[in-house]
Amino acid sequence: MSRIEVLKTYKIYIGGQFPRTESGRFYQPKVNKKAIANMCQSSRKDFRNAVVAARKAQGGWANKTTYNRSQILYRIAEVLEGRKAQFVEELMLQGTTENAAKEEVNLSIDRMIYYAGWCDKFVQLYSTVNPVSGSYFNFSVPEPTGVVAVFAPEQSGLLGLVTQVCSIIAGGNACVVLASESKPLCAITFAEVMATSDVPGGVVNILTGNRAELLTFFASHMDVNTTLYCGDDKAAIKTIQEIAVESMKRVRVREDGDYFDAKHENPYYIFDFQETKTTWHPIEKIAGAGSGY
């Protein structure tokens, strides 16, 4: 007797939980006109809930030692490694060839490890002691920007997403990500990996749905510190930049291209989501130099 296959309903990931969208809507990404899964079509309220969860989690995440964050990112890579087969299968379902899928999964794991390594090193790289005229010890250090809203790359459903998410959380931020609309399966499976790998709930939140519908909310939410847009739709970028002014939000734009390229392994990706804090510390005159350092 032939069996009817069960089509998985992928739920969204908010605050460490997997709720359905509050709107009750869904959509079916299609490959060759055939539906491959049921996905939640998230609403602005799901986004709002995710931002609340991200804000709640961000402080604790930023306060972890950089070394511990590094360990947790490495743990994500480990768990990813254990679930390789599922990712490969999903990528193939989304229309990738087997070899390309394997390569993408492997590189995603490697990239996670790459950014795990940077967690306890980038601060040293981007900190400076500044020469000032006066008896002050003046230094600058990067600090996490806070909550980042992300439009993940549309074409690179897994590798692109992993690259963005790990560079953001490596620096102590929390994020709310809208996954690729046409290739969303791996994003939610990646969320399942997050949920089982010591990442505190709320640090990464992943929604699926329609980019155009959520565009303005990602830009206008007063409690989002930076919006990252991956793609090249000039009109959308302009809209985000205009709305973001209202809350002095930073807007970052990255391409939606070939994430296999090694240029995406770059510590400046972490620095993009940092704010520089400068401290003036009064000191005595030292070494007869007259001024500070």
């Binding site: 709002r48 909310f217 206008s220 939410h221 007063m222 409690d223 209202e246 809350s247």
Partner: peptide, 9 residues
Amino acid sequence: TGNYQSKDY
């Protein structure tokens, strides 16, 4: 205002 708000304000 139509915008979701932040405690910061």
